[in-house]
């Protein structure tokens, strides 16, 4: 019990810190591609850790009470997190592609092979 009592606040803390970094990133970075970097990676990772905190909490409740409802809770949380991780990455890919197709160039940029390939 004491182990989960320390793990849950730590995981929630990690999750909230990374979610906050993602939000600061989209407010701070200069163009849409760098904002996508901040958004996709950090919010996915932070939400995975929030989900892990929920899973650990449900596991301790499952061992304390033996209530099968908590097992369902764990399974559904894991499925929600998996769906989130897959859809976030694919959605970021779609936004990046759409932004490039709509003619938005990376603003500070040292090299852009995609525009060169399109212009050929």
């Amino acid at each position: 019990m004491s182990l989960s009592g320390t793990l849950i606040p730590v995981f929630i803390g990690i999750g909230l810190v990374f979610n906050a970094l993602g939000v600061i990133g989209i407010l701070r970075f200069p163009d849409v591609y760098t904002r996508l970097h901040a958004e996709t990676k950090t919010t996915t990772f932070g939400t995975i850790f929030l989900g892990l905190a929920v899973v650990i909490y449900s596991l301790t409740r499952l061992f304390d009470t033996g209530d099968g409802e908590y097992l369902t809770f764990i399974i559904h949380t894991v499925i929600a997190i998996a769906a989130l991780a897959i859809t976030n990455a694919t959605g970021a890919h779609a936004i990046a592609r759409a932004a490039h197709m709509s003619g938005q160039k990376p603003a500070p940029c040292v090299v852009d092979r995609l525009s060169e390939a399109e212009n050929d």
Binding site: D31, Y33, P106, P108, R113, A117
Partner: peptide, 8 residues
């Protein structure tokens, strides 16, 4: 500190 770009 960023130095972004698109590579292939």
């Amino acid at each position: 500190r960023i130095r972004p770009g698109i590579v292939r």
